[in-house]
Design a binder for these strands. Structure first.
Lengths: 139, 139
DNA sequence: TTGTTTAGTTAGTCTAGCTAACCATTTATT
DNA sequence: AATAAATGGTTAGCTAGACTAACTAAACAA
């Protein structure tokens, strides 16, 4: 089937320039995309442990530790101990929430521009394809 | 518009696990995906200079230098001087071509599995969206 | 009680990119 | 023709962002 062989090259092609733009957009906030990924996760799903962040972001625990330490230094997240005394619950501070809201607004404009010219139907179809790939990848 | 805000999170979500699988698939050939990207480019478009590779791959020249040096050590590419004596033309060796063909075959299976369950129409729509994003990014 | 699993950290490694500074050659300007 | 500017490529050194291995402390299971 021809389409399966065209989709991913196109997908991969997009990634690096997209990432560069994303990092540019985040630079005024002193953030990199990996940090942003965690902030957004915490904003969407509320406070969680390091282990859960690692699971959700599909990275190893030491990677999370390092990024969270920096977010902590920046005052964007705070940590409270759990009843299970091994656990640390990580959540957004007021400042962290404000930052997320600002970045989201910037991203909205950025993404709208990037997809200008695409039809709603095509976008929905694209989202379906990405979801299927994600699912197939995890089984 | 809602869809533009859903597409990219889904897009980004897919990238890291995809990359990991890709690197796993390449490991038997002693390749990483950055090296593979250059090999495939040379296979598709024939020999070219370091500068053109940098342009096409959207990375800086020193990054290309480093990767090409490794491909050279592995015997997958060869270099010949151009008439412009600054230029070095980089092309696939026989071994390089054979490697590309083998990897392509593996990738075909991998991609087919990954997109199993997606309709041809959705895939075509997805490709259209990715192409538009790519175009919008470069202007 | 003792052994095993789980949460998190530290230390060290690697890929894959970057910028700055440089050399050699080619092209443009005066 | 001479000089300045641009281009192709390299070297050196830096960083983000991942990884594994090895560890501590706490919780859970036998």
């Amino acid at each position: 089937m021809q389409q399966t062989q065209q989709f991913f090259p196109e997908y991969v092609q997009l990634y690096r320039p997209l990432l560069n733009r994303l990092n540019n957009l985040l630079a005024p906030y002193q953030l990199f995309h990996s940090q942003w990924g965690i902030l957004k996760l915490l904003w969407l799903d509320g406070e969680m442990t390091s282990a859960e962040i690692a699971l959700r972001r599909q990275v190893e625990k030491p990677s999370v530790t390092k990024i969270v330490q920096r977010l902590l230094e920046m005052g964007l997240v705070s940590i409270r101990p759990g009843t299970d005394r091994r656990e640390k619950w990580i959540g957004l501070t007021e400042q962290g929430q404000a930052t997320v809201v600002n970045v989201m607004a910037d991203l909205e404009v950025f993404y709208d521009n990037l997809l200008e010219g695409a039809t709603v139907e095509d976008l929905e179809a694209g989202i379906r394809v990405l979801k299927i790939a994600n699912k197939n990848l995890h089984k």
